[in-house]
């Protein structure tokens, strides 16, 4: 473990364990349908999602939308079906008070 502190240290420590400290990758998975929707995880009650369509010929320009809790979304272009799964504390991601408990 090289000398480091703070977030940099957490990143390096996670790397040494073969894990990822940050959650930077876009969600991917099989094409979502009404029967088997694309499940998008979110720490909040809503999240901005982009639909790129299906594979190959079925691909389309990314269409962005707000996916909200308990409000499934159907892509207007390819009818891919999305639902939001809240895995965090929920609440609103907007505003300036979203730095959890701590205030500076």
């Amino acid at each position: 473990m090289p000398i480091a502190t703070g977030l940099e240290r957490e990143e390096l420590a996670a790397e040494l364990k073969g894990e990822k400290r940050f959650d930077m990758d876009p969600p991917v998975g099989p094409f979502g349908t009404k029967e088997a929707p694309a499940v998008i995880e979110s720490y909040y009650n809503k999240r901005i999602v982009g639909c790129p369509g299906g594979e190959g010929e079925d691909e389309h320009d990314v269409v962005w939308f707000w996916l909200k809790k308990d409000e499934p979304h159907e892509c207007p272009v390819c009818s891919q079906y999305f639902v939001l799964k809240v895995i965090g504390d929920g609440g609103d991601p907007d505003g300036h008070d979203d730095d959890d408990e701590h205030h500076h």
Partner: peptide, 9 residues
Amino acid sequence: MIESQRHSY
């Protein structure tokens, strides 16, 4: 803030 930060910026 750090312990909950999920992005690397």
